[in-house]
Amino acid sequence: AGIEWLLSFLNWTSHIHERPYRNRPLSEEQKEKNTERSKTRSHVEHVFGAWVMQLGGKLLRSIGLGRAEVNLGLKNLTYNFMRFIFWETREPVLN
């Protein structure tokens, strides 16, 4: 794959998932690597999913880098407040 070669040429670690093909299922090592990659990926994708579903998407309609940074900063702040409220209003788990 071209992108895998480019990443190795730049001495970067690839975080691209392996996929099975017909009559060639994934090995156990490939499955473990995909599981490890999914842990990181899921944390990041949940943030972008919340942006798209609740905060108006990832598209910015502002002129200038400064305004774009402020816009993204406010979106991040809003997301963090929403997560804070979520964790604060949960019922405590009794053991």
Rank of each mutant, 00 (worst) to 15 (best):
A1G: 15
A1F: 12
G2H: 12
I3S: 09
E4A: 07
L7F: 08
S8I: 04
S8E: 14
N11I: 12
T13L: 01
S14Q: 03
S14Y: 01
H15F: 04
I16W: 01
I16A: 04
E18S: 13
R19F: 09
P20C: 07
R22T: 13
N23W: 06
N23I: 02
L26K: 03
S27M: 03
S27W: 00
S27Q: 10
E28Q: 13
E29W: 02
E29F: 09
E29R: 11
Q30L: 04
Q30M: 15
Q30E: 15
Q30K: 15
E32P: 00
E32L: 04
E32S: 06
K33D: 10
K33M: 06
N34P: 13
T35I: 07
E36V: 09
K39G: 07
K39L: 14
R41W: 05
R41D: 03
H43G: 04
H43T: 13
E45C: 08
H46M: 11
V47N: 02
F48I: 12
F48E: 04
F48A: 08
G49D: 10
G49L: 03
A50N: 10
W51S: 01
W51D: 03
G56N: 06
G56W: 01
G57F: 14
G57Q: 06
L59M: 03
L60V: 14
R61W: 13
R61T: 11
R61M: 05
S62C: 14
I63A: 05
G64N: 04
G64I: 04
L65K: 11
L65N: 09
G66W: 02
R67V: 10
A68N: 11
A68G: 01
E69Y: 06
E69K: 15
E69M: 06
V70A: 12
V70L: 10
L72M: 08
L72V: 13
G73F: 06
L74S: 01
K75W: 01
N76D: 06
N76G: 08
T78V: 12
T78C: 13
T78A: 15
Y79N: 02
Y79K: 06
N80F: 00
F81I: 13
F81D: 02
F81P: 01
F81Q: 05
F81V: 05
M82S: 07
M82K: 11
R83P: 07
R83W: 03
F84T: 13
F84M: 11
I85L: 05
I85E: 02
F86N: 09
W87S: 03
E88A: 01
T89Q: 09
P92S: 10
P92W: 05
V93A: 14
V93P: 05
L94K: 14
L94P: 00
